[in-house]
Write a protein that binds this DNA or RNA. Structure first.
Length: 298
DNA sequence: AACCCGATCAACCGCTACTTC
DNA sequence: GGAAGTAGCGGTTGATCGGGT
């Protein structure tokens, strides 16, 4: 399939938007909704391409945009989600009402990445950097046992997924991976997971079902079929088999091999449980949850 | 005051996924 | 099934600002 230009670039304005342009766009969308972004600029009388209009609307003009600095709780959530989802900014943004993918991306690149680096964590993998002096040790502590269990569960789930994937694809109507993860994330299981680094839920609506949420990013964007990052995929794989045919349910159904979910439940969730991580930082092994553990240091 | 430099963030670009025909 | 059209995502860029010298 050939690449198609998003618009006729001749005579179209680029660069920063003026207040007048903003007003025209907002007025038009309020009256007509955006409809087709491609045709919107012409109909609204804007010398912009549809793509630019969409971006301006979703990143800046939307009425539900939350302006202002990120709260520490939001930052924690971004890091937690990034540890699982990787650079899926839209998927992360879907869990932070009022925040845009662009905003979160900027936050990550300008603040959080550096913060992880300063803590000796690789911002890409959330694993300890070799230069930070973390030595891999035998899994003796509860933490490292969990890591080993995670890996074991992941491998098990991955194998099971490969067996089941053909079944699912042949049966049709299967929801995308993201929905499974987000359901889990928004369920009590996810709640327990988020409690690793407790924060005031009143500041977020992460418990809200993604199925009922209206965001700029559909939840289906969370896990593209050929995900570039394996981090989120691995976690999602571990969740496969649970609740597969009950979209939007807010609890996890029983599953014969839900060891991964059990691990989530089994994970320490109180401050006290996590405190030893701070003391035993050197015992971390590779796992996406390393960064989550480190959150307690924020 | 002038310059430099790093931080920030809005906007653009290129690509992929999805939808329609 | 394949081509064309469209929307959305993530990476990158560039303008702007503020602090330091």
């Amino acid at each position: 399939m050939g690449r198609t230009p998003c618009c006729d670039k001749k005579g179209l304005k680029k660069g920063p938007w003026t207040p007048e342009e903003d007003e025209i766009l907002v007025d038009y969308i309020k009256k007509n909704s955006h409809g087709s972004w491609r045709t919107l600029p012409k109909q609204a009388g804007l010398l912009r391409c549809g793509k630019s209009c969409r971006l301006r609307w979703t990143n800046y003009l939307r009425p539900d945009i939350k302006r202002g600095p990120f709260t520490p709780e939001e930052e924690k959530l971004v890091i937690q989600l990034h540890a699982i989802l990787g650079n899926r900014w839209a998927a992360i943004a879907a869990q932070l009402p009022g925040r845009t993918d662009n905003e979160i991306k900027n936050l990550w690149n300008t603040h959080l990445k550096k913060r992880l680096l300063s803590m000796g964590l690789d911002p890409k993998t959330h694993e300890p950097l070799p230069s930070y002096g973390f030595a891999k040790q035998a899994p003796a502590s509860p933490t490292t046992r969990h890591m080993a269990q995670w890996e074991s569960a992941r491998l098990e789930a991955e194998a099971r997924l490969s067996r089941e994937s053909m079944l699912f694809t042949s049966s049709g109507g299967v929801k995308s991976d993201c929905d499974h993860f987000l359901r889990i994330w928004n369920s009590e299981i996810g709640q327990s997971f988020r409690n690793l680094a407790p924060f005031d839920e009143s500041t977020t609506t992460t418990s809200q079902s993604p199925c009922s949420r209206t965001t700029t990013s559909s939840s289906s964007a969370a896990f593209p079929k050929n995900s570039k990052s394996s981090q989120g995929k691995e976690i999602v794989m571990a969740f496969h088999g649970s609740d597969y045919y009950s979209p939007c349910s807010n609890h996890v159904e029983d599953d014969s091999s839900d060891s991964a979910l059990q691990l989530l439940l089994d994970f320490p969730i109180s401050d006290d449980d996590m405190s030893f991580l701070e003391e035993n930082i050197g015992s971390y092994t590779e796992s996406p949850v390393d960064a989550v553990s480190m959150l307690s240091k924020f």
